[in-house]
Design a protein around this nucleic acid. Structure first.
Length: 878
RNA sequence: GGAAGAUUAGCUCAGUCGGUUUAGAGCACCUGCCUUACAAGCAGGGGGUCACUGGUUCGAAUCCAGUAUCUUCCACCA
């Protein structure tokens, strides 16, 4: 783009992205180089880009671009996730809008709609990532439900089933009696709801099914479920109820006898201390039932009505039944009292129906072995969690891992490869044909139409946990003994993965499990956890709140580089991100600064015959060192995943050191030309700087790199080697720092005295000031500097390091005296503090020599300052 | 209710083994400047009892205990 204009990001972004794509710079194939691999956390296939994605993918892109410039074979595999629950509910909603209820469709018809929807809306998010500059290897784009990956999922299921780790069990699900489907925990909304606490009398049985006159009282919110009671439970430590031991009680109205049992689960001071146990209709009761081998009696049907097992009120809706049974209990004399009570009740997010806990058959994967190995992977350090505070969470999860319920009552997903024979026996095989064969081995007469495939699909995580393997070699999952293909062998294990801590268990831990199982190796070396993106006042970014800006709008307004900077500036690992548009503005300002500095440098005329002024020569030597030092710091930050620190180091190097000091020093006077040596050095520094920034700001750096010199078609900054840290001279850096301090001091005096910027001053420095950097002070403070003695002159003085700087100028003596006195008092106080410390015997005895030396230096410096102030005061008072 | 983490300037955060610190950045703010790369800028400046209370130590933002507030994850109580 044109140099004499303001920087316009939209003018360059599309151009360079297209250029990068055209030359396949993002594409990677196995070769002799060291690979650096990241797999993308696959976003929902029908999702759209939000700020969380921006953060995550910016970090991914920074890491991958950095690795690419470090000479590694960088491969970032993109893709999307079929997200069964989210996608299916979107499709259901869409169909509903069209007036088509899901239950009017067959599975095949529904799936046809779903695939249509996916083709139409799928992958938008991947296109949006390009706007951000994401350098993914698009040729490797994967989708968790594409045929090959689905096959991997099925093979995995079959593998674990044959290994004996997958079993069918019973579990409480959240049943929506209106939608007639199970819903996930996430789709249940708990709302505090006004209800009643019914205190019911259960009479003790005489042993022959007849009530005695003794009774106990239980409190319940669901009297309509008493017919399903399997026991009454009390806490074994509760002395009030010891008399009940071994007794049986009768369920009111139906007079069924049930035992009294004891379990720690019961809270002694909640309700009456007696709990009715209804295993079929309460999650906890179910678990108590398991512990005590209680029978399970289901009395509520799929529509939420009482069934014939309830014996009474058969066919009534559960809420109607509740009202009626209360009346019946009252009439029968079993109702002691009713209390108003507010309790959290689960409602279906979709239908707002009250959720009914329902037992259902589900498929489970045993976790104990897998979790043990996954814990070992992290504890041994083969996979590192960053920040490591998540280690505790991880360990807790792995040590308490419950078996993984992998079936879902949905259609969108990989259907469970289990087939049922007419007699109920199950065969598990990868294909229908293989299943038929297996079935015929059991029962030779079975025909294809006699075996029925399981209706459920697999949990989405059951496909995404294979991601780091299946994106490279879909044949591998389910076959630990198979040789990995060339891609998998080369790219696995991947290096880093960037994701949110909320899915540490759902995804990260499980990828480690599958990696260990199928590859015998961890899937990645580092897990970098980002925070959650929040708005200024700390709320989660969400569509419903409307507080999430559209990243594409932001990119259009500020540029992708600015948005990337804005996200990174406030993102230390694992901490939540408080997003504020001013950070993106800061990013845009940085782009402008870089652009403008380039305009300056490119605008210079070069005089081939000129020699470098002393100030420029010093500046070049100094900045080369400064750059080396900064590169070293940046590398250190990257190695510790301190990305925002790395960015801030570069930001300050460019803005504060390169622009504010270096360029000001070497800048030729108006109308003058620059000498060739300085010019070349300046361009060299500029190139090093933009290479350093490129991983963070890919677009502007490519534009400038291309303009900086004549580049051949097919060249790119993306493969320009990262600047390497060289040696630097700490003495030079320190001397320059003194010069900077002197300049700042002189400017301060000018400011204070209201002197014009160009009014020449005479400055005297004492012998301990490094004379080598005097030209710097001369050039930047517009003064003539010389070593000298301030004796007999009027002016202001200050101390830089250990040397005195005296500025000769006309001053208001009174004012100067007041100021000096104030400074003097402060220094004396400081000195007293230091001396107190140094006279402390314990300090001298215990502190490291280094620290004591430092204190002595402080003392000496303070003394020097005091001396200098006193001298100046004396001179002024004369 | 259980667990983990956090609390440093108006805001967002660094502070790496307890000692290069009289606690640092960036943004915001205030003052002065449309100075020939840049007002999306330049030169300056103010602003902190490191949540609170104790303890350990020669020395604490840093380690320990307690208190308060917040966040997240898990369980949500018949």
């Amino acid at each position: 783009m044109e140099l004499n204009t303001k920087y316009n990001p939209s003018e360059v972004e599309d151009k360079w992205y297209a250029y990068w794509l055209e030359h396949k710079f993002f594409h990677s194939e196995p070769d002799g180089r060291e690979p650096y691999t990241i797999v993308i956390p696959p976003p929902n296939v029908t999702g759209i880009l939000h700020m969380g994605h921006v953060l995550n993918n910016t970090l991914n892109d920074v890491l991958i671009r950095k690795a690419r410039m470090d000479g590694k074979n960088a491969c970032w595999v993109p893709g999307t996730d079929h997200a069964s629950i989210a996608t299916e509910s979107k499709v259901v909603a869409k169909l509903k809008e069209m007036g088509i209820p899901k239950d009017s469709l067959t599975r095949e018809e529904f799936l046809r709609y779903a695939w249509e929807w996916k083709e139409e809306h799928g992958g938008i998010i991947l296109k949006q990532l390009r706007k951000l500059g994401a350098s993914c290897d698009w040729d490797r784009t994967r989708f968790t439900m594409e045929p090959e990956l689905s096959e991997a999922v099925i093979n995995t299921f079959v593998y674990f089933y044959k290994k004996g780790w997958i079993y069918k069990g019973v579990r409480m699900v959240n049943w929506d009696p209106e939608a007639l489907t199970a819903v996930s925990d996430d789709e249940v909304i708990h709302k505090d709801t006004q209800s009643h606490f019914y205190h019911l009398k259960y009479y003790i049985s005489d042993g022959a099914g007849h009530p005695t006159d003794q009774y106990l009282v239980i409190a319940t919110t669901r009297p309509e479920t008493i017919m399903a009671d399997a026991a009454i439970c009390v806490n074994p430590a509760d002395g009030r109820h010891h008399w009940l031991r071994g007794k049986k009680v009768l369920i009111p109205l139906i007079n069924r006898e049930i035992p009294v049992i004891e379990d720690d689960y019961v809270e002694m001071d909640f309700g009456t201390g007696c709990l009715k146990v209804t295993p079929a209709h309460d999650v906890h009761d179910y678990e108590i039932g398991l512990r005590h081998s209680l029978p399970v009696l289901e009395i509520i049907d799929d529509h939420g009505r009482l069934n014939e097992k309830a014996q009474i009120l058969v066919g009534e809706d559960r809420f109607v039944a509740r009202k009626k049974i209360v009346k019946m209990l009252e009439e029968a004399g079993n109702l002691e009292k009713v209390e108003a009570y507010t309790s959290p009740v689960g409602y279906s997010e979709r239908t707002n129906a009250v959720i009914e806990p329902k037992l259902s058959a589900q498929w489970f994967l045993k976790m104990d072995e897998l979790a043990k190995r996954a814990l070992e992977t992290v504890e041994s350090g083969r996979t590192r969690l960053i920040p490591d505070k998540y280690m505790n969470t991880y360990r807790h999860w792995m040590e308490n891992a419950r078996d993984w319920c992998i079936s879902r009552q949905l259609w969108w997903g990989q259907r469970i490869p289990a087939w049922y024979l007419p007699d109920g026996q199950v065969v598990v095989e990868p294909t229908a044909e293989a299943a038929l064969k297996a079935a015929q081995a059991i029962c030779p007469d079975v025909k294809a139409e006699d075996i029925k495939q399981d209706e459920d699909v697999l949990d989405t995580w059951f496909s995404s946990w294979l991601w780091p393997i299946s994106v490279f070699d879909p044949q591998k999952p389910g076959h630990p003994d198979r040789q990995p293909n060339a891609d998998l062998a080369y790219y696995y294990p991947t290096n880093d993965i960037v994701t949110g801590p909320d899915i540490i268990f759902f995804w990260v831990a499980r990828m480690i499990m599958s990696g260990e199982e199928f590859m015998g190796k961890e899937p990645f070396s580092n897990v970098y956890f980002t925070g959650i993106v929040r708005d200024k006042i700390g709320r989660k970014m969400s569509k419903t709140l409307g507080n999430s800006p559209d990243p594409l709008d932001l990119i259009a307004q500020y540029g992708a580089d600015a948005v990337r900077i804005g996200m990174l500036l406030c993102s230390s690992a694992g901490n939540d991100i408080f997003y504020d548009e001013s950070q993106v503005e800061q990013g845009r300002n940085f782009c402008a600064k870089i652009w403008n500095s380039f305009r300056l440098v490119k605008g210079w005329k070069v005089d081939p015959a000129a020699t470098a002024p002393e100030a420029s020569a010093i500046a070049v030597r100094w900045f080369a060192d400064k750059l080396n030092q900064a590169v070293e710091t940046v590398e250190d930050h990257y190695s510790k995943f301190r990305i925002s620190d790395a960015l801030m180091t570069i930001y300050r190097l460019f803005w504060d050191e390169y622009c504010s000091w270096y360029l000001e020093l070497v800048k030729p006077a108006f109308g003058q030309a620059v000498d060739p040596v300085t010019y070349e050095a300046t361009l060299g520094f500029f190139e090093a700087l933009i290479k350093l920034i490129h991983p963070v700001m890919p677009f502007i750096t490519e534009e400038l790199w291309q303009q900086l010199a004549v580049r051949a078609e097919g060249e790119t900054i993306m493969f320009a080697p990262s600047p390497k840290a060289g040696a630097y001279d700490p003495a030079l850096l320190q001397a320059f720092e003194l010069a900077q301090q002197a300049v700042v001091g002189i400017r301060g005096i000018r400011n204070q005295k209201g002197l014009a910027p160009k009014e020449a001053l005479e400055v005297l420095v004492d012998a301990s000031f490094p004379t080598a950097v005097l030209p710097v002070v001369e050039k930047l403070a517009l003064v003539s500097v010389q070593e000298g003695d301030a004796e007999g002159k009027t002016g202001a003085s200050f101390v830089v390091g250990t040397s005195k700087v005296f500025v000769c100028l006309k001053v208001n003596v009174e004012e100067e005296i007041t100021r000096l006195k104030k400074d003097l008092a402060y220094q004396q106080q400081f000195l007293a503090g230091v001396r107190k410390k140094l006279s402390n015997g314990n300090f001298v005895a215990h502190a490291p020599a280094k620290v004591i030396e430092m204190e002595r230096k402080k003392e000496a410096d303070a003394l020097l300052r005091i001396e200098s102030y006193e001298a100046a005061l004396k001179a002024l008072e004369k």
